[in-house]
Design a protein around this nucleic acid. Sequence first.
DNA 1: TTTAGTAGTCATAATTTTCTGACTTATTGC
DNA 2: GCAATAAGTCAGAAAATTATGACTACTAAA
Lengths: 103, 103
Amino acid sequence: MTTKKEIVDNETCPAQGLLKLLSGKWKPEIFRLAVEAPLRFSSLLRQIEGSNKQTLSVALKELEEVNLLEKVVIKKKPLHIEYYLTQKGKSLITVFKQLENIG
Amino acid sequence: MTTKKEIVDNETCPAQGLLKLLSGKWKPEIFRLAVEAPLRFSSLLRQIEGSNKQTLSVALKELEEVNLLEKVVIKKKPLHIEYYLTQKGKSLITVFKQLENIG
DNA sequence: TTTAGTAGTCATAATTTTCTGACTTATTGC
DNA sequence: GCAATAAGTCAGAAAATTATGACTACTAAA
């Protein structure tokens, strides 16, 4: 009998999902800026030097899919879109602060 | 004058370094196993299915370089090496737990 | 001094992620 | 209708990460 109880199943590392998600390129910056104010696509592109449309687009979509950001269509003057931090997103703020402290 | 005070400098996102470090392939598993017991190279290779020498080797080295793991040569029966969580490493345990809770 | 065990390294290949630049969709104001 | 603005999408190229398999270094015991 092959008792492999010591073998690690990839699914059993619960922090992994969020870690991978938050560490994708430009994601930490996106998150940090979202803490300060709602995000707009074109602003992000300008604010995060070196970033590009495609990657930002995918990043925002992924952060939205896991419910860290919420996408809102603003039907005002220049019609545009804003991304807000969700409650779940806000709960990550302390995690970021801890990481900063640990250095 | 080009006042670019809104432009994000990549260095100004302090959580980024640790995030990237912890999210590299197999790193969360390595960390989680290190919380439970000192690590040995050959055991890790067996325990983490799908992993490979090269990547584990680099991962351990990186975790050691930022002082999350400490490498100790054990001059006992079968001479071998053990990797221990440092104090800094231990301080990450609560971060992982928070990430797990947030899901 | 030969063999076995542990812990790797190295060059190369495969895979995944990110970037670039052209193109698309939707709405508003003229 | 037509141009302008905002927010993207898409295919292919480039870059970074990860995997493979052969090889090395060290020690201890026989």
